[in-house]
């Protein structure tokens, strides 16, 4: 029967004695191989490897296990469905009070995008998400009114 041989020559080119092992002992043979290579390295290389392992552990802790949690966010970071509902609420309020200045002021907290852009984005999402016709109509009404105002502002006086 042929016994498999593991060549333990390391990545630094350090020649190691080959390890003979049975198939069932493959993991142990690999560990032994790694240990032999580690022992053959200089202290500086081992120190750098230890730092890299530490960095990996630190990133795992900082990004996965215990990432920074933001609890003081602004509406512009809201998920798109929440932003759409936010726009819908503005449209609902505008439907009753007709206060365009207030609606624009409220839309401003959703980010740098223009008010028309925000409302259009919300309408697109609402259409895809299957909002009711009544909700869509209210958002479209707000969008139309914003467009009218935009056109008035852009049209130069004769």
């Amino acid at each position: 029967m042929q016994i498999p041989v593991l060549d333990c020559t390391g990545f630094l080119g350090v020649k190691q004695a080959p390890i003979l092992f049975h198939n069932s002992q493959m993991p142990l043979a690999l560990l032994r191989c790694l240990w032999q290579n580690t022992n053959a390295m200089t202290r500086r290389v081992r120190f750098i490897i230890a730092i890299l392992i530490g960095v990996a552990l630190g990133l795992l802790f900082g990004w996965v296990i215990n990432p920074i949690e933001y609890t003081q966010t602004a509406p512009n970071t809201l998920r798109v469905d929440y932003q759409t509902d936010y726009v819908l609420m503005i449209a609902e309020a505008f439907h009753t009070d007709g206060d365009m200045a207030l609606a624009v002021h409220r839309l401003a907290v959703l980010g740098d995008k223009s008010p028309e852009g925000r409302v259009l984005q919300a309408i697109i999402f609402a259409e895809q998400a299957g909002y009711t016709d009544a909700d869509l109509d209210m958002m479209r009404n707000l969008s139309d009114e914003l467009q009218i105002i935009q056109n008035v502002v852009e049209t130069p006086e004769p």
């Binding site: 230890a50 730092i51 890299l52 392992i53 530490g54 960095v55 990996a56 552990l57 630190g58 990133l59 795992l60 802790f61 900082g62």
Partner: peptide
Amino acid sequence: GIMLGILF
């Protein structure tokens, strides 16, 4: 390394 990782 852990300190550097967490800092990053």
